[in-house]
């Protein structure tokens, strides 16, 4: 008898710690990321076809949207937290990446806040560290601080000379020669919810917010070569604060 075991794809194991005395259960939790443009549903079907008008009045259309979320954390009223370390890379052209489930050891019960990191924090944003991300060229150039992209939004906007490309890419911000700022964003979302076996969490990204709040984004000024543009990187950071909201939390 002969056994052949082939492991395809990487297995990434994540561990996290929490300090509490609640009864911990092994639970399957599901996450779903939805996208909209000011409440108008936005999917890959809209790419290259739907035209949006941003807060500055620029007409734009999208060709690509990918981003990475990590360190989803649950907070209980008594201050106890459970962090699910790890990451998920979303690609709107690939539906399958927008939903994910995992199995966690976490106390059941009442929670008040959920948070996650848009991007990877200093501890995790290590150049070349993740085979699956390297394999899709998600890296951020070393001369800009290295690590990985946090967000990549590519598209075109209308000008008097026709459609022009924009590359809204967020990652480590280069301040100057060998000086960088981490630039990831921790998103905190409050809601009183009960977490049980098979609870599903929905999150919404309002893409319009990337161009709106607090900085009204002028695509005629900030369109390409933004990775190396410190001002643009910090504006992206500022605008990322209102991009996400919590959707339905449901337990069947």
């Amino acid at each position: 008898m002969k056994k052949t075991l082939i492991l395809l794809a990487v297995i990434t194991l994540f561990s996290a710690c929490s300090s509490d005395d609640d009864k911990v259960n092994n639970l399957d939790l599901s996450f779903k990321f939805n996208h909209n443009w000011d409440n108008q549903n936005l999917t890959f079907d809209d790419f290259g076809s739907t035209t949006y008008t941003n807060a500055n009045g620029d007409q734009l259309s999208l060709d690509r949207l990918r981003y990475i979320v990590s360190n989803i954390t649950f907070y209980q009223e008594n201050g106890q937290t459970t962090q699910l370390s790890g990451y998920q890379l979303f690609d709107l052209s690939d539906e399958e990446t927008l939903n994910f489930t995992f199995n966690a050891n976490i106390p059941e019960g009442e929670y008040t806040v959920i948070s996650f990191t848009l991007g990877l924090d200093e501890q995790y944003n290590i150049s070349g560290a993740y085979a699956d991300l390297n394999s899709v060229s998600w890296n951020w150039p070393e001369n800009l601080g290295g690590g990985y992209h946090f967000l990549q939004m590519d598209g075109t906007y209308e000008t008097t000379e026709g459609a022009q490309p924009f590359n809204y890419h967020m990652g480590t911000a280069r301040v100057g020669e060998n000086t960088y700022e981490a630039n990831y964003r921790t998103v905190y979302l409050s809601s009183d919810f009960t977490l049980n076996q098979n609870t599903t969490f929905e999150f919404n990204m309002n893409v319009a917010e990337w161009f709106k709040n607090p900085h009204t984004w002028d695509l005629n000024e900030f369109n390409t070569e933004l990775m190396m543009n410190y001002t643009a990187q910090k504006m992206m950071y500022d605008n990322s604060g209102t991009v996400f909201s919590l959707g339905d939390i449901t337990t069947p």
Binding site: K2, T4, Q88, F102
Partner: peptide, 29 residues
């Protein structure tokens, strides 16, 4: 008390191919 939460993020695909055992004629290169 410290709790360990072990989570599997991303996809694990493990394919186990077993060459059926009892057939002694089963050829294996």
């Amino acid at each position: 008390m410290r709790l360990k939460v072990v989570i599997l993020f991303g996809l694990i695909i493990s394919i186990v191919a077993c060459n059926s055992s009892d057939d002694s004629n089963e050829y294996v290169a």
